[in-house]
Design a protein around this nucleic acid. Structure first.
Lengths: 200, 200
DNA sequence: TCCCATAAACCGAACGTTCGGTCTGTTATT
DNA sequence: AATAACAGACCGAACGTTCGGTTTATGGGA
């Protein structure tokens, strides 16, 4: 079946988050999947194609958040919704990506950097996703201000960016530290604190 | 002389910020430096040693900020000092690292990721540097509160972290976008805005 | 139930290429 | 003359990929 195919994708995803594209060898993929080179090339035409599919099935699937799922008229509910979803994804990955009691490093920036170098147009898509994220934040901030939930001399845009940059900043820090699980707790702390400053 | 040596280091630094360690080949280094393999191995015993020296002479030199240079009793002066230094470094790199009117990508996170994989103990040093950075922020925030410059329900620690995370978040965003030059402007905007909220 | 045809799943030796690194030789500098 | 600075032919290991072949699973005819 395509169990093997999916398994290759999963292992490859883990490896591409641990080391760069070039550092991940076919030998390693074959060993970790307990398959052979022949079996691998039965499912994928090339290592590069595998990488592209990893990006498609994992990066775009996990990080392409649908913001309409969250509250559209209350800022606090909105960001708590995001926090919940992030926590759910981290939990999912933590249980799924365990090898010998050790959670595999989840450095998705490594994945993104390689994708930018390998896939033409990828950077543009990342920027588009960021723009969409920003637009969603800006909208809910604007709504929250209109409804009297918040009041601040800051523009909507700056408030939105502050939330987003805190998120990304904590993200890259805990990736470097190697403790992605702690990430969400800090983001919540910082978001809550900032929210208290701008709430009416 | 060691002009060639320094030139190799410079070119290598640029390359290691553009692509991962494995993707940067000796062939490319030799071509870009207009030297030969013989010349390269006259100055460096190995590619790995070159990488280590790049880390030493660039990463530790540029990013290991001395916070005592900045104001120790006024928060706003403190962070404006940091902004000035960051701008100076960006300007320096922008003029120095130009090839055919194009500024070479300054993805220092790529450098850090490779260093973590290659150099044992590097992650710990990164964390130590982060901890020192945090401690400096915490101290100046504490002082600013004591002197009545700021007043906020937030703890010193959370205020310090907010400044830092905004910085890092903007950093990684503009690296992904490929516009490191715009970074500082946004950080200043966000820091100023946040500062206005906590200032007395 | 057994056999056989077909295809999917899988294997690993072998290939050409590229890698980091070595070695021998030449030129420039002091 | 001696040494530093460089050049480039050369090496073995490792890389991604190919390919001929084997095993396993499936289904229809007798």
């Amino acid at each position: 079946m395509n169990d093997s195919r999916k398994y290759i994708l999963k292992i490859a995803f883990q490896l591409f988050m641990q080391k760069s594209y070039k550092e991940v060898t076919l030998k390693e993929i074959v060993e970790k999947t307990k398959l052979s080179k022949g079996a691998f090339y039965h499912y994928f035409p090339s290592k590069e194609q595998l990488f592209m599919e990893v990006i498609d099935s994992y990066y775009y699937a996990y990080l392409n958040v649908d913001y309409l799922k969250f509250s559209q008229d209350n800022l606090k509910d909105f960001y708590n919704g995001i926090l919940e979803q992030m926590q759910a994804e981290i939990n999912k990955m933590s249980t799924e990506f365990q090898v010998d009691d050790k959670v595999v490093p989840m450095n998705y920036y490594l994945l993104i950097f390689d994708a930018i170098n390998l896939l033409p147009g990828f950077r543009k898509r990342v920027i588009e996703i960021s723009d969409r994220e920003f637009e969603q934040w800006r909208k809910i901030v604007s709504t929250a201000r209109a409804k009297g939930e918040i009041s601040s001399p800051m523009t909507d845009e700056l408030i939105a960016k502050t939330f987003i940059r805190i998120n990304d900043g904590a993200g890259i820090y805990f990736i470097l530290e190697g403790n992605v699980e702690k990430m969400n707790f800090e983001i919540k702390e910082l978001w809550d604190a900032f929210y208290n400053h701008i709430k009416t």
